[in-house]
Design a protein around this nucleic acid. Structure first.
Ligand SMILES: [Mn+2]
Ligand SMILES: [Mn+2]
Ligand SMILES: [Mn+2]
Ligand SMILES: [Mn+2]
Lengths: 217, 217
DNA sequence: CTACAAATTTAGACTCACCTAAAAAAATAT
DNA sequence: ATATTTTTTTAGGTGAGTCTAAATTTGTAG
């Protein structure tokens, strides 16, 4: 049975490695987990012994199949809980992430399967992120950050960053929800800001925000 | 912010003291929490410093008002989650206690109030135990153990012990649910067993079981 | 009242997850 | 190629919560 800390490390490693594609460095992990590099070194040694990751000194860590399946189970729980909170209990989409960070560690297969069933097997969470199925299979969506779109291009929002409550409140206000169509009106070279149209309304969007809106290719 | 261990200690102290009526001894607490007396001594010192309990060496602990309100908040969460699991997700009443032991520690006032609202402000949990309200007020029910009833007496089941899954499965089988009427047909002095009628069906009930069925006075 | 037993506390140690400071390795700049 | 900076690891330590074994206090029985 994995501890809360171990689960959080594996989840972070999974995310930072782009689903296991690339190696993750000690400092990245320390940053993401709000901890110190020395603590990370300790923990990755432990996770490596348990074979959830492979660790080579000074070169970072790679997640194993075993580690991936733990990470995906946690991510599945996180996203199902967020969906439940919004759909069933009427939470706003900016209120769910913190609570889901706790709920994702509840140990009960029965519980999460019942929630999944109750919700009608949703495919994505309230922020557009895909929900892995019980076998850990996840639909990887074709997406890019809004900031990568060329002027004039049309696209559809597929997901948004879910961990910044203020960002989410702002996105709500301008109607930037997954599923919404959007057109890039203009881009400012200087600061990376851009003008977009969402449902015929025009908005100025900062570079920072444009990095956290994911759109179809 | 209280730790999981601290919350569990306070909950146990509250239960073992009959809602704060009497002092709780070190060994009782060790037994209830599945730990050792030495560990309990350490923890009660800490809780005492924080004024959740008052502790006098060798004489046990008494819960304070502050401690009671923490305990009641945890008990509220436990019982609301159990109710949710049974009513909304279709868990059986013997499947919920363990999961609720985890869920009761989720920190989010919003979450528990939403659940309460979603369930329509239930008064009792699936095992008949009263649910404290958001202010920590709890309806104390007039009840006694089935074993205390005299031969021939009629009574109604108000609650059953919720932590023993096998007991609950057995009670389910004989229809011993809160709200059900029951008559004591006969009592066996020798082993404390008794014969009862539940909805005109007769059952032999061991002393042990009769201690875990609570009925109206 | 004394002896023994039971309950409780103290002492010392362990694991987990974290920390700071120092050492070492790797990356970068001159 | 050497010096400097950055990254990572090692060394040593902390607090929470637990443990065992030993000491102490309280309760009970003769
Ligand atoms: Mn989230
Ligand atoms: Mn999300
Ligand atoms: Mn319970
Ligand atoms: Mn219950």
């Amino acid at each position: 049975m994995l501890s809360l800390a171990e689960e959080n490390y594996l989840k972070s490693i999974y995310h930072l490695s782009d689903a296991g594609e690339k190696a993750v460095l000690t400092n990245e992990l320390a940053e993401a987990l709000n901890t110190k590099a020395a603590s990370v070194t300790d923990m990755v040694k432990k996770l490596s012994t348990k074979e959830f990751i492979s660790y080579e000194k000074y070169y970072g860590v790679k997640i194993t199949g075993k580690g991936k399946s733990v990470a995906l189970a946690v991510i599945r729980k996180h996203r199902l809980w967020e969906t439940f909170l919004v759909q069933t209990l009427g939470f706003k989409w900016d209120e769910v992430h913190e609570v889901a960070e706790q709920l994702e560690h509840i140990k009960s297969t029965l519980l999460i399967e019942k929630i999944d069933e109750f919700l009608g097997y949703p495919q994505v969470d309230p922020h557009g992120d895909p929900i892995p199925n019980a076998q850990g299979k996840i639909k990887k969506l074709e997406k890019t950050a809004l900031k990568n779109l060329a002027t004039g291009s049309e696209s559809t929002i597929v997901a948004v960053k879910d961990s910044d409550s203020n960002l989410l409140k702002y996105l709500e206000k301008i109607g930037a929800k997954p599923g919404k169509k959007l057109t890039v009106i203009s881009k400012e070279e200087y600061d990376g800001s851009l003008q977009v149209a969402i449902e015929s309304q025009h908005y100025f969007i900062s570079k920072e925000v444009s990095e956290n809106i994911l759109v179809t290719l």
